[in-house]
Computed example of a mutant assay.
Amino acid sequence: MSYVKPIEVLETMVINGANKANATPLQMLIRGGLGGAILACATTLAFTATAQTGLGLVGALVFPVGFVIIVLLGLELVTGNFALIPLSVLEKKTTSAAMLRNWFYVIIGHLLGCAVYALLYWVSITSIGSNTEHPMIANIISISEAKTLSYKALGMEGLVLVFVKAILCNWMVTLGVVMGLTSKSTIGKITAMWLPILIFFAQGFEHAVVNMFVIPMGMMFGANVSMGDWWIWNQIPVLAGNLIGGVLFTALFLYLSHKPLPSFSQLQPKASETVQEKS
């Protein structure tokens, strides 16, 4: 399936990270909004599949469809950018300020996109508020409370737990981004990306963008979760853990594994060499 070698994958990571960091704020907001909404849609698909079959693994099998759509369309996931853009900064292809600007606008986009999908989903499963007996409502409330109140009950240990689960999550998510670069064919990219995303979702790890939808959605349905519970006991530590997982476990470790990283020009045939080969 047109396999791409790791050294070329790393070079593409640097280039893609620079391109993302140098996009306009409007592009970041729109791409982030679409990314958040599509991932939220994939989340409700996974919840539905789990509820229909009684098997969490079935939900995990279908969830990666959202991630695949986002990557193939060149949209934004801040969790993926946690691995790409730091490498671009390391290779001096962009700046730290541009990196932070990207993360800020993309996160705002995610929150807006997740909110829009949450509203549309509420209209759909409640028939515009006239039906509150849909089984998915209780399921989302339960998940929302589990992602906040269960950690709160453990105190400091809860913060450590959610932080570790976030690291493990984004190790897999960023590997999904990287694996998508290991093939030049669409089917190859889809297959490669699917594997790490399935791993994280099936094990209940914590993903910041998924939680930007699930927890507020549960709050909309009446979950006993406050704004402070959401941000203090989940969203902030999960964002921090996702950052560590992306930067350290994927970006830095892969970079050090294949260092020194050649410049992009070194990966391309020189004009003189091309002429000689043709002759």
Rank of each mutant, 00 (worst) to 15 (best):
A21Q: 02
E157Y: 12
K259T: 14
G228A: 11
S263T: 14
S150G: 01
S96Q: 09
G36K: 04
Q52I: 08
A46C: 03
K189H: 11
G33I: 10
E91F: 02
L61S: 07
V123W: 14
V210S: 00
S226Q: 02
L84A: 10
A46R: 01
K92T: 10
G245I: 02
V178L: 13
T250N: 11
N102P: 07
K184Q: 14
L243I: 14
T132A: 15
N16G: 15
A49D: 11
V164K: 12
W171L: 15
K5Q: 15
F201M: 10
N139S: 12
E145T: 04
I125C: 05
V116N: 09
G241V: 03
Y255E: 00
N16Y: 13
K93D: 06
K278L: 13
E157G: 14
E206T: 01
A138P: 02
W103I: 11
G35H: 02
W230M: 12
L248N: 07
L87C: 08
H207E: 01
S226P: 09
I108F: 08
W194F: 15
M193A: 09
I125G: 04
N211C: 09
F47P: 04
V225C: 08
T12Q: 15
M136N: 08
F63E: 11
W230P: 00
S272V: 08
W231K: 00
A223H: 02
Q276W: 11
A251E: 06
L256S: 11
L84F: 14
L149E: 04
N19F: 10
E157W: 10
F163E: 10
M28F: 12
E76K: 02
V209F: 11
V160Q: 10
V89N: 09
R31H: 11
E91P: 00
V177I: 15
Y3R: 09
L256K: 15
V247G: 03
G36Q: 06
S265Q: 11
S185L: 12
A240P: 01
A138M: 01
F264C: 09
L34H: 07
R101W: 07
A60H: 00
P260N: 02
A18V: 01
A138D: 13
N211E: 08
V58F: 07
R101G: 13
F104Y: 11
L55A: 12
T24G: 06
L55R: 04
N170M: 05
V177P: 01
I197Y: 05
I236A: 06
L161S: 14
Y117E: 01
I232P: 04
T94G: 07
G17D: 08
L243P: 06
L159W: 09
V71K: 06
T53N: 03
H207W: 02
L90S: 06
E157C: 02
G74A: 07
T132F: 11
